[in-house]
Amino acid sequence: MQNSELIGEIGLTHYLILSALLFVAGMAGVLLRRNAIVILMSVELMLNAVNLSFVAFSHYLGQMDGQVMVFFVMTIAAAEVSVGLAILVSIFKRYKEINVRFFEHLKG
């Protein structure tokens, strides 16, 4: 692939690489951060990256199915966040701390 072509002409590859980088940034957040809320946010970032690749595929392959998937992913992500935040709020009320280290105290 020529260098000028890489910059001057946008194709599916560009969107996929951007989506991959966003996904990896989110993954790094999940692995490296210790604040439970930030971990949830990083998961959202990963979901967004996947959405971007879905829409890019849908656009370049000329099929609508990818956009429907994005629609589903968005709904599920919103549901996930609402439950996750509710759990975190109740944990914060109990322990005054949302560092994942403190969750070791949770026992069945």
């Binding site: 966003l22 940034a25 989110g26 790094a28 930030v38 990256a49």
Partner: peptide, 12 residues
């Protein structure tokens, strides 16, 4: 792309 990626990295 640059703005979005910068935003994502700052988040983390």
């Amino acid at each position: 792309a640059i703005l979005t990626l910068a935003g994502g990295l700052t988040t983390v």
